[in-house]
Design a protein around this nucleic acid. Structure first.
Lengths: 236, 236
DNA sequence: TTATGAAATCTGGTATATCAGATTTGAAAT
DNA sequence: ATTTCAAATCTGATATACCAGATTTCATAA
């Protein structure tokens, strides 16, 4: 408050590091397991042994148990009381996760169109314009970042914290797969057209249009991911 | 296999009791806490002390931790790494849970309309007819049971296991509150009309109609619950 | 050879102990 | 009276111990 410039002897006031950045063992295990399951490194129906897992991670069973409880609530494993947990993930499960995300994202887009303010409108159009540029220049990495910014911005505009959290859990593909998608010019163009349509609908306050375009976008792009991840047609 | 009749000395073959009926301490804690949170027995933002909770339940902290992990993934509490968990539930959270359920139930109704077979159609209409009778006779308990059967049947018809599980977690009112609702003749009639419309749409294979009527039903009835639980207007 | 069932083993569920980060307290300095 | 900061305390995170239900093994009988 007193000094606006940095004092010579470093006693500046630093923002306290956001506690949510800290990583606990259970979160590490949770993320690692989630990633392993959705990338198909476990067979659906496979039994999980807590002691083995703990040994593989080099930790005790306590954080393992907690991570498994999270995965269970997410629907990626099923707990059979006193008999352990089994993996529950397959292409049909992934399809349903896409449908869930489509349903929730379109609901949140609907609300965003109703609730967005002038500042939010401008920022959304700005992001859409940046997407246009990145699409033309073929900057895949920027597109991945902008895509996240785009959806996050809509979530915030909707003022729906619960729905936003719920949507996060329906994501089953990671940055590396997104990169593959965004390297394809045709795919880039499709995504851009959809994003522009969504942004326009939200900016125009067209709740039903935002809902529809968002759902179509999530389903179509989801299907693209699905076909890559599960090699629907023409196996290698 | 050998004897169809019950042998004198009781060595009949019994169906093995479904393991999922067994109750672990963590499940008990999870349900009790969930119920306590959604019925407002904790203030939003209130900190939870694991040792206190364990003492109150008369158990160790291990099952408490697991239950808290489940609640965290459900979005009812927030975990601040190394600082504990705080309650996250309010009327706005409940509103969003209704919206989530509306989005998901309407998606599942859409798919049910596309995927239901002849047998399923008939059974759905049968349930709708039983609802009609129970509405006329004012049998609230039957209506509650039938309501569950109705929605479960649609879930099964959609063949969507993941979506059905996800929907279950968006429920924040229990049987006692449902009873209050179903004791009101006006409310009963509204719900019946909506259920009939949904059943007709699904039976006719009208996916868009099923989606729309289901969403309207969930939102409207959800708002009714909300106004009762949170006494929106005209506090006592 | 096949069926049976009791003992041995495995494994999830719970309790307890320990560690370390976060919070509180209180004495000393200003 | 207010600020400072280190010691004491609290509490979540992790490790370990133990118990009981589930599964497997294997000797025995049919």
């Amino acid at each position: 408050m007193a000094t606006a410039t940095l004092p010579p002897s470093g006693d500046a006031e630093f923002e306290k590091i956001d506690a949510s950045f800290q990583m606990t063992v259970r979160d590490h295990v949770h993320r690692a397991m989630r990633s392993a399951i959705i990338s198909g490194r476990f067979a659906s129906g496979q039994k999980i042994n807590e002691r083995n897992l703990a040994e593989q991670f080099g930790v005790s069973t306590t954080p393992i148990k907690e991570a498994l409880r999270q995965l269970e609530t997410e629907g990626l494993v099923e707990a059979l009381p006193r008999r352990g947990v089994v993996i529950r993930f397959s292409s049909s499960w992934a399809e349903e996760m896409i449908l869930a995300r489509a349903a929730l994202e379109s609901m949140i887009a609907h609300l965003a169109a109703k609730r967005v303010d002038e500042k939010g409108r401008a920022e959304l159009q700005l992001i859409a314009n940046q997407m246009k540029e990145a699409t033309i220049s073929g900057d895949a990495d920027s597109l991945i970042t902008l895509n996240e910014r785009f959806h996050d911005h809509i979530h915030r505009s909707s003022k729906c914290g619960y729905l936003a959290k719920l949507i996060e859990r329906q994501q089953f593909y990671d940055a590396s797969i997104r990169r593959v998608i965004h390297l394809d010019p045709t795919e880039r163009q499709k995504a851009l057209d959809e994003h522009v349509a969504i942004a326009d609908a939200i900016a125009a306050g067209d709740a039903d249009g935002a809902e529809r375009t968002m759902r179509d976008h999530v389903v179509r792009s989801g299907d693209t991911y699905l076909s890559i991840i599960f090699r629907k047609e023409g196996e290698i």
